[in-house]
């Protein structure tokens, strides 16, 4: 039946979109690790993969958007849903531009910051890793969304604390860095931190969407 074909195609696209975002986040995490380990070739390869996946996510999102409007589907939820997908897609955009800047600007992170930086990346990745399943479950079981996004908020807070900790170390503890270098490193910390901030914004949108559906 034509009606359910559209619905099946959209479900497939949506799954593909979420898979792509999850993949981007995982590869980006490996890329940061590669950068800190000095494996620049691997880092470059992973960057290319992230760029490619980010394009793919953009493409799928636009397709979903067009299909929803062309077939006038979900008239009441469409606006919120597209806003959510755009925010989720922003995560891939932030990661792509962040990693590209790593490659172009080559920030020099002192050895003592590596573990903290890895932990910050880990927290950010975890926030996204909990966001995507919550987004997936929203379509079938909006009641479960609340408990799932609780973890997104948790990891966002953790990453905020971690970022603050790193900034404190950069400016107060590490002495063999120029002020310009310190400001440069802070820029990258903010860039990584913004991943979990964006995940939090998406979780807020999702939370309201789930309330609307259960009314």
């Amino acid at each position: 039946m034509e009606l359910f074909k559209t619905s099946a195609a959209l479900k497939k696209m949506l799954d593909e979109f979420f898979d792509t975002i999850e993949e981007v986040v995982l590869i980006a995490k490996i890329a940061v690790d590669d950068y800190l380990s000095g494996q620049h070739i691997k880092f470059h390869e992973n960057l290319l993969r992230v760029v490619e996946l980010e394009h793919k996510a953009d493409h799928i999102r636009r397709n979903i958007e067009n299909r929803l409007y062309e077939k006038s589907l979900l008239p009441q939820f469409r606006g919120d849903l597209l806003h959510l997908l755009e925010k989720t897609d922003d995560i891939a955009d932030i990661l792509t531009s962040g990693l590209s800047q790593f490659e172009v600007e080559r920030p020099r992170f002192p050895e003592e910051l590596h573990a903290d930086l890895r932990r910050l990346t880990e927290m950010c990745v975890k926030s996204v890793e909990h966001l995507i399943p919550a987004e997936r479950i929203y379509f079938r079981d909006p009641l479960s969304v609340k408990e799932m996004i609780h973890k997104v908020y948790f990891y966002e807070k953790e990453s905020d604390q971690q970022a603050l900790e790193i900034k404190r170390k950069i400016f107060n503890q590490i002495e063999d860095l120029d002020l310009s270098e310190k400001i440069h490193l802070r820029y990258f910390i903010i860039q990584i931190e913004s991943i979990s901030d964006t995940a939090e914004t998406a979780a807020n949108i999702l939370s309201i969407m789930s309330i609307k559906r259960t009314l």
Binding site: F4, S7, R140, D141, P142
Partner: peptide
Amino acid sequence: ILTLRVHLFDLDQIIRI
């Protein structure tokens, strides 16, 4: 709807019919 966990896209189509 909450028990059957129908996907939002399917639900939209069913409700239209």
